[in-house]
Protein backbone atom coordinates (compact mmCIF):
# COMPACT_ATOMS: atom_id res chain seq x y z
CA UNK A 1 0.00 0.00 0.00
CA UNK A 2 2.67 2.46 1.04
CA UNK A 3 4.57 2.25 -2.26
CA UNK A 4 1.40 2.71 -4.26
CA UNK A 5 0.48 5.70 -2.14
CA UNK A 6 3.96 7.13 -2.61
CA UNK A 7 3.73 6.71 -6.39
CA UNK A 8 0.36 8.46 -6.41
CA UNK A 9 1.76 11.17 -4.15
CA UNK A 10 4.66 11.69 -6.58
CA UNK A 11 2.21 12.05 -9.46
CA UNK A 12 0.15 14.45 -7.35
CA UNK A 13 3.25 16.52 -6.66
CA UNK A 14 4.00 16.68 -10.40
CA UNK A 15 0.41 17.72 -11.11
CA UNK A 16 0.51 20.45 -8.44
CA UNK A 17 3.90 21.77 -9.61
CA UNK A 18 2.65 21.93 -13.20
CA UNK A 19 -0.60 23.62 -12.14
CA UNK A 20 1.25 26.23 -10.05
CA UNK A 21 3.86 26.80 -12.76
CA UNK A 22 1.33 27.38 -15.50
CA UNK A 23 -0.77 29.61 -13.22
CA UNK A 24 2.19 31.77 -12.20
CA UNK A 25 3.45 32.37 -15.72
CA UNK A 26 0.05 32.45 -17.42
CA UNK A 27 -0.26 35.00 -20.22
CA UNK A 28 -2.84 37.76 -20.25
CA UNK A 29 -6.33 36.39 -20.91
CA UNK A 30 -7.68 37.09 -24.37
CA UNK A 31 -11.19 38.48 -24.53
CA UNK A 32 -13.63 35.91 -25.89
CA UNK A 33 -11.08 33.13 -26.02
CA UNK A 34 -9.28 30.72 -23.75
CA UNK A 35 -5.70 31.65 -22.97
CA UNK A 36 -2.72 29.31 -23.10
CA UNK A 37 -2.99 28.43 -19.40
CA UNK A 38 -6.64 27.44 -19.07
CA UNK A 39 -6.50 24.04 -20.77
CA UNK A 40 -3.44 22.83 -18.80
CA UNK A 41 -4.99 24.20 -15.60
CA UNK A 42 -8.12 22.18 -16.29
CA UNK A 43 -6.11 19.02 -17.02
CA UNK A 44 -3.76 19.26 -14.04
CA UNK A 45 -6.57 20.35 -11.72
CA UNK A 46 -8.63 17.30 -12.70
CA UNK A 47 -5.57 15.10 -12.44
CA UNK A 48 -4.88 16.29 -8.90
CA UNK A 49 -8.49 15.67 -7.85
CA UNK A 50 -8.50 12.16 -9.40
CA UNK A 51 -5.20 11.32 -7.70
CA UNK A 52 -6.50 12.41 -4.30
CA UNK A 53 -9.62 10.25 -4.80
CA UNK A 54 -7.42 7.33 -5.84
CA UNK A 55 -5.21 7.73 -2.78
CA UNK A 56 -8.22 7.78 -0.48
CA UNK A 57 -9.55 4.65 -2.20
CA UNK A 58 -6.22 2.86 -1.86
CA UNK A 59 -6.10 3.71 1.84
CA UNK A 60 -9.68 2.62 2.45
CA UNK A 61 -9.35 -0.63 0.51
CA UNK A 62 -6.24 -1.69 2.41
CA UNK A 63 -6.88 -3.89 5.46
CA UNK A 64 -6.14 -2.07 8.73
CA UNK A 65 -3.27 -4.37 9.67
CA UNK A 66 -1.47 -3.50 6.41
CA UNK A 67 -1.73 0.27 6.88
CA UNK A 68 1.81 0.80 8.14
CA UNK A 69 5.29 1.85 7.06
CA UNK A 70 6.88 -1.57 7.53
CA UNK A 71 7.60 -2.16 3.80
CA UNK A 72 9.48 1.13 3.70
CA UNK A 73 11.67 0.12 6.60
CA UNK A 74 12.36 -3.23 4.94
CA UNK A 75 14.18 -1.59 2.04
CA UNK A 76 17.92 -1.85 2.28
CA UNK A 77 20.74 -0.68 0.06
CA UNK A 78 21.81 -4.30 -0.29
CA UNK A 79 18.34 -5.22 -1.54
CA UNK A 80 18.37 -2.38 -4.06
CA UNK A 81 21.86 -3.17 -5.34
CA UNK A 82 20.98 -6.83 -5.69
CA UNK A 83 18.05 -6.08 -8.00
CA UNK A 84 18.65 -6.55 -11.71
CA UNK A 85 15.97 -3.98 -12.43
CA UNK A 86 17.94 -1.34 -10.54
CA UNK A 87 21.06 -2.08 -12.58
CA UNK A 88 19.07 -2.12 -15.79
CA UNK A 89 17.73 1.36 -15.13
CA UNK A 90 21.11 2.63 -13.92
CA UNK A 91 22.60 1.40 -17.22
CA UNK A 92 19.75 2.91 -19.24
CA UNK A 93 20.02 6.32 -17.59
CA UNK A 94 23.83 6.12 -17.62
CA UNK A 95 23.80 5.53 -21.37
CA UNK A 96 22.26 8.95 -21.99
CA UNK A 97 25.22 11.16 -20.97
CA UNK A 98 27.56 8.48 -22.32
CA UNK A 99 25.95 8.74 -25.75
CA UNK A 100 26.57 12.48 -25.71
CA UNK A 101 30.18 12.21 -24.60
CA UNK A 102 31.41 8.90 -26.04
CA UNK A 103 29.09 8.60 -29.02
CA UNK A 104 27.07 5.63 -30.25
CA UNK A 105 29.76 3.04 -30.86
CA UNK A 106 31.51 2.69 -27.47
CA UNK A 107 28.31 3.35 -25.53
CA UNK A 108 26.36 0.83 -27.60
CA UNK A 109 28.95 -1.91 -27.09
CA UNK A 110 29.19 -1.36 -23.32
CA UNK A 111 25.39 -1.08 -23.05
CA UNK A 112 24.89 -4.38 -24.90
CA UNK A 113 27.55 -6.10 -22.80
CA UNK A 114 25.92 -5.00 -19.54
CA UNK A 115 22.43 -6.08 -20.61
CA UNK A 116 23.60 -9.43 -21.99
CA UNK A 117 25.28 -9.99 -18.64
CA UNK A 118 22.14 -8.96 -16.76
CA UNK A 119 20.15 -11.47 -18.82
CA UNK A 120 22.40 -14.20 -17.47
CA UNK A 121 25.14 -14.67 -20.07
CA UNK A 122 28.51 -15.18 -18.39
CA UNK A 123 31.00 -16.23 -21.11
CA UNK A 124 33.06 -13.15 -22.15
CA UNK A 125 33.13 -14.02 -25.85
CA UNK A 126 29.36 -14.56 -25.91
CA UNK A 127 28.94 -11.15 -24.33
CA UNK A 128 31.41 -9.06 -26.32
CA UNK A 129 31.03 -10.46 -29.84
CA UNK A 130 27.21 -10.12 -30.09
CA UNK A 131 27.50 -6.63 -28.53
CA UNK A 132 29.82 -5.53 -31.32
CA UNK A 133 27.62 -7.14 -33.99
CA UNK A 134 24.37 -5.61 -32.67
CA UNK A 135 25.91 -2.14 -32.39
CA UNK A 136 27.53 -2.35 -35.81
CA UNK A 137 24.39 -3.59 -37.61
CA UNK A 138 22.23 -0.83 -36.11
CA UNK A 139 24.90 1.76 -36.80
CA UNK A 140 25.27 0.81 -40.46
CA UNK A 141 21.50 0.56 -40.94
CA UNK A 142 20.66 3.93 -39.49
CA UNK A 143 23.51 5.99 -40.93
CA UNK A 144 22.55 4.66 -44.35
CA UNK A 145 19.03 5.92 -43.70
CA UNK A 146 20.62 9.35 -43.18
CA UNK A 147 19.79 9.21 -39.48
CA UNK A 148 22.87 10.44 -37.70
CA UNK A 149 23.56 8.69 -34.41
CA UNK A 150 25.33 10.43 -31.49
CA UNK A 151 28.97 11.14 -32.41
CA UNK A 152 30.41 12.04 -29.02
CA UNK A 153 33.01 14.71 -28.42
CA UNK A 154 36.73 15.27 -29.05
CA UNK A 155 38.69 12.38 -30.55
CA UNK A 156 35.62 10.15 -30.47
CA UNK A 157 33.75 12.60 -32.66
CA UNK A 158 36.52 12.38 -35.26
CA UNK A 159 36.40 8.59 -34.92
CA UNK A 160 32.63 8.56 -35.55
CA UNK A 161 32.98 10.86 -38.56
CA UNK A 162 35.64 8.48 -39.90
CA UNK A 163 33.43 5.40 -39.39
CA UNK A 164 30.49 7.17 -41.00
CA UNK A 165 32.64 7.68 -44.07
CA UNK A 166 33.49 3.97 -44.13
CA UNK A 167 30.04 2.52 -43.53
CA UNK A 168 27.92 4.85 -45.59
CA UNK A 169 27.21 3.15 -48.87
CA UNK A 170 25.73 6.08 -50.80
Amino acid sequence: MIFELLFNAALLLVAVICFVNITLVAPEPIQGNMNAAQWPQLIFGLLAVCLVINMVRIYRNTPKEERNLKPLKAISLQHLLGSRLTWAFVTLFGAIPALNILGFFPTGIVFCCVFTFLFGERKPLRIILPAIIITLVLYVLFINLNIMLPRGTGVLRSFHLFTEGIFRFR
Partner: peptide, 8 residues
Protein backbone atom coordinates in the same frame (compact mmCIF):
# COMPACT_ATOMS: atom_id res chain seq x y z
CA UNK B 1 20.53 -10.98 -27.25
CA UNK B 2 17.04 -10.22 -28.48
CA UNK B 3 16.16 -8.16 -25.39
CA UNK B 4 19.41 -6.25 -25.70
CA UNK B 5 18.76 -5.60 -29.39
CA UNK B 6 15.25 -4.37 -28.59
CA UNK B 7 16.69 -1.94 -26.05
CA UNK B 8 19.32 -0.72 -28.51
Amino acid sequence: YLGTTILM
